[in-house]
Design a protein around this nucleic acid. Sequence first.
DNA 1: CTGTTAGCGCTTTCAA
DNA 2: TTGAAAGCGCTAACAG
Lengths: 361, 361
Amino acid sequence: MLASVNEWTSVRGQAQDNRQSGSATLQEVARAAGVSLATASRAFNGSATRTVRPDLRERVLAAATALNYTPNANAQAMARGTTNLVGLVVHDIADPFFSAIAAGVMRAADEHGLIVTMGSTQRDPAREVEYVAALRQQRARVLILAGSRFADGETSERLGVEVAAFQAAGGQVAAISQQKLPVNTVVVGNRSGAAGLATTLHGLGYRSFAVLAGPPELLTARDRLAGFRAGLAKVGAELPAGRVVAGEFTRDGGYAAMSELLHRGTDATCVFAVNDVMAVGAMAALRDHGVRLPEEMAVAGFDDIVTLRDVTPALTTVRVPLEDLGVWALRLAVQPPADKPRTQRIRGEVVIRESTPDRSS
Amino acid sequence: MLASVNEWTSVRGQAQDNRQSGSATLQEVARAAGVSLATASRAFNGSATRTVRPDLRERVLAAATALNYTPNANAQAMARGTTNLVGLVVHDIADPFFSAIAAGVMRAADEHGLIVTMGSTQRDPAREVEYVAALRQQRARVLILAGSRFADGETSERLGVEVAAFQAAGGQVAAISQQKLPVNTVVVGNRSGAAGLATTLHGLGYRSFAVLAGPPELLTARDRLAGFRAGLAKVGAELPAGRVVAGEFTRDGGYAAMSELLHRGTDATCVFAVNDVMAVGAMAALRDHGVRLPEEMAVAGFDDIVTLRDVTPALTTVRVPLEDLGVWALRLAVQPPADKPRTQRIRGEVVIRESTPDRSS
DNA sequence: CTGTTAGCGCTTTCAA
DNA sequence: TTGAAAGCGCTAACAG
């Protein structure tokens, strides 16, 4: 995992060269400019209070250019006691859901002159904890936990401890998904979105539903299922037993869940996959089993993944502004710490497309 | 861009608290364990030569746990003169091409105990240069440049200078795509892949082609076009004038290019989009213009993006092992530096699917 | 095997 | 406005 860099330490150790050879230091720049170390430093960081005579400043900057000087961020971090590192923890960077969020985080980080480091946990809560620990070690200034919290109580607690330690060390934190930790959170309206989807589908004339529900330990999956149920209840419909199939939160998970449902035999006419990626897998399964889309089975997803907008039939879904989620999370985290963690709620917007044609007329 | 963190510096500055409050130091651990600083250090980094008496070591570790101690990576970087940071520069992290590569890099980095930081340039070569500079400032140990090099001579040169500076500072570098810099490179067989695709399509009975060629400044786009041409030439076919349309390297770029081709009017029966993302856009355009797929127009792409495997009709393409590209790049970069940059070539594999049915029979 | 000590490169008092 | 000097937390000689 995130262990042992010893092999490497020794490799460089051989050179007996402790300095980063090749990089000029501020000291050298100062000497070249004929000023003191302090003055050289001020020439770069000069604020209102600590200013440098213009000509000296010029000389320092010139010397820096000549020597191809770049400040050593690690040294700055030491001296200042703070870094400009953002740690982003995602479940799976190859999943378009997370890469969209990452794009948002990176864009916002850029605006603040922050550098983004990233860890992909492969949906393993234990690795989430490991990454947070690694980020604490890096003295990252900001930690962003993207993606569903887990139902797993044991590692959730360990995560809580680790996050608290991160905060105790002066780091700022934001989470995206559920408000399960005492940190700033961008809360996604999974329940409301799924409920809205359910009622909309009902309005379209669908009466018999099934749900490909994702892994039960993912709170996001649970919430979407619960929301869908609630939405159906509101219009007097329901989800009979045997109509909910769990599966991985991936394309293949959707494929497998749909296959199982088909295997069981079902009279559902509309299936809700709790995310778009699963929905696409479900569509493939339906096709492979000779079920016509959307005539024999309507399909809906959740997220409105951009890359998936071109599947056919076009997928009905709940749009979530994924990139914005990332932007907001960073902004929340970057605000001067308040006494209370902040919460920002976003609601998904139901988008009806061809995969769920109107049956009411 | 990657500028000004001064707002922040001042925010923390208010606190007048230079220490990362909350984090215990090795010194404190040593004191708590009743040993010297050096011994405490050895207890953690203990190698064959520098060992610590077991009981002392125990005491140190216990104290560390009690104090919730984590080494300060910045301080270690300073003292050791080297970090464990990998800087990955991509064109667009939201593009599945790059998120797949990123997944590979992160997986491989994990194996080596390295932390990955990432920058997304939005295909702007100038920002590529900026990121490399930022990574030099971080004293990253490894730099991975993923994605096509540019035809733009001016910024290419600036990139070369910056990369050289990075190397001069002791960093290791690897690129993915074309061998255009004196660094380790995973070379993608764009030409051979596109050529193979062309001959295969010809073998399938297609005779009249068009190409959605991507932006001319991207070498990857150029190479794929050139390869396709070469492949056609080999079987005595060709690409008449007006059959090549440039476009952005994105879904919308593919859509626009295809629309333009349709607008111009064409008698091509098979269109090659130089990447899958564009191909999907092209399919959407064809559909919107009422052209039946694949009967009236066959479509082929390049890359074999996993997320896009479920479009219909299934897309003929050239498979590139994207995640492996990332893994190999990191491994190349992490090897002890040699006198010569290493090169690793990978060939794409033509995958025929429904979007280009056999017309030869 | 353990402790002392000298840095790593930079920021920031504190005096001048 | 400038300079001297004291750290920031840790590693790695160098002596014991």
